[in-house]
Design a binder for these strands. Structure first.
Lengths: 192, 192
DNA sequence: ACCTGAACACCGTTCAAGT
DNA sequence: ACCTGAACACCGTTCAAGT
C-alpha cells in the first residue's frame, strides 16, 4: 500500500513507544516503513513537524473532559484532567521532551492542553492569568513525566530496586498538584 | 597551553551562550579548542558528563542565599532565589534543556537547586514533601526559561514585534510562583 | 600523560531523475 | 503524484599509534 501521512505518524509513535526518542530517526523510520529516507519528506516537511504530530497523537488518547463543568467542580475536574494527562504520557519514553517541544512551538496545538486552559478559566482564574497558570500546570505535568522516566532508567541500572519507583513519583506529582490547587483557592478567596 | 578539563567546560559554556545547544557538538568544540575530537575524551568521559558540568557552571553564577534565614522569611527568600535562578538562565540559549537533563540525571548535582530545597524545608514544608515541592519549583523555573527562549525565536521570525516579549514571560513566571507560595501558606495554615 | 589520525556507525535534508 | 538513488554536510565515540 502507498505511504500516507497517517501511517508515517503512527509508525513514528510506535517507534517512540518501543525504543524512545534516540531511536526515532528519520532513517530508522524509513527502514521501518521499507522506504528510502527521502520518501518521508514528501509526507512531512521536517522531523520537527513530525514530532508535533506525534505529540498530538499521544495526547489524543487522554479521555476528554465532560462539557459544561460547573464552577464549583472546575478545580476538581482540572486536577483530574492533569492527572489523566500525566498517566497517559508516563509510560511513553521521552514523552515529556516530545510534548514539551510541541507545546513550546505552539501552545494551542494540543487538544488536551487546550481543555486544561479552559478549565483554568472556568475555575475563576482572572483572564490575564490563565496562560500563566496553564503553563505552570503543563510544566508540572511534563516535569513529573520526565522524572519518572529517569527513575525507571536508574532502577533498571540498579540491581534489584531500592530506588524510588513510579508510585513514588506519582505521589510527588499529587503533592505538587495540591499545592497549586490550594494556591488558586487562596487567590480566589483573597480577591473576592 | 595544554588542554584542561576546566578549559573544555568553559569553552563549552561560551559556545552554548553564543550559538545554542545545536552548535555545541564535540567536533565543533574540538575545532574551537584547536584539537582533534578524540582529545576531548581524555578530559571528559562523554558529552552527557560535559553537559552536567556546563549546567553546574551556569548555576554557579546565581548569587547564593544568605545563611540562616529565619522561618518567617523563608518563603520570601525562596521566591527571591527562584527568580534569581530564572534570571540567570533566561539569557542562555537552551539552558532549560541542559539544566533539566542535569537535574534529571542527579537532583543534588546543582548547588543553587540544593539551596532551593533547603529553603523549602525551612519554610515549614513537611520533610516527606520537600522533594515534591522542590521539583515543582524547578520545573516551573525551567519551563518558564524554555518558553521565553521560544518567544525570542518567534519574535525574531516575526517582522517587527507584536509578539509577547521577555517581560511578558517574566510576569507569567511571577504569577505562577505566587500561586505556589500561596499554596504552601494555605497548607501550613490548614495543618497547624 | 596527553594527543593525533583514522575509522565505525550513524544523523537530517535536498533534489535530480525515474515511474 | 509519489518514490529512489545519491549526495552534502554533519554527528558521538573509540582506539591504535605517536610524542
Amino acid at each position: 500500500m502507498a505511504l500516507t501521512r497517517d501511517h508515517v505518524v503512527s509508525t513514528a509513535v510506535e517507534l517512540l513507544r518501543r525504543y524512545g526518542l534516540a531511536d526515532l530517526s528519520m532513517r530508522r523510520l524509513a527502514r521501518e516503513l521499507d522506504v528510502q529516507p527521502g520518501a518521508i519528506y514528501w509526507h512531512v516537511a521536517s522531523k520537527q513537524e513530525l514530532l508535533v504530530e506525534v505529540a498530538a497523537a499521544l495526547l489524543a488518547e487522554v479521555p476528554g473532559v465532560r462539557e459544561e463543568v460547573p464552577q464549583s467542580e472546575a478545580l476538581a475536574a482540572l486536577a483530574e484532567l492533569a492527572t489523566a494527562v500525566r498517566a497517559a504520557l508516563a509510560p511513553v519514553p521521552d514523552a515529556a521532551d516530545v510534548v514539551g517541544m510541541a507545546y513550546a512551538a505552539e501552545r494551542a496545538s494540543v487538544t488536551a492542553l487546550r481543555e486544561l486552559r479552559g478549565l483554568v478559566g472556568r475555575a475563576g482564574v482572572p483572564a490575564d492569568s490563565c496562560d500563566a497558570v496553564t503553563d505552570l500546570l503543563v510544566h508540572h505535568i511534563l516535569g513529573s513525566v520526565a522524572l519518572e522516566q529517569n527513575e525507571r532508567l536508574a532502577q533498571a541500572g540498579d540491581a534489584g530496586g531500592a530506588g524510588r519507583d513510579g508510585a513514588e513519583v506519582a505521589r510527588s506529582f499529587a503533592v505538587g498538584l495540591e499545592v497549586i490547587v490550594r494556591g488558586l483557592v487562596a487567590a480566589k478567596v483573597s480577591s473576592s
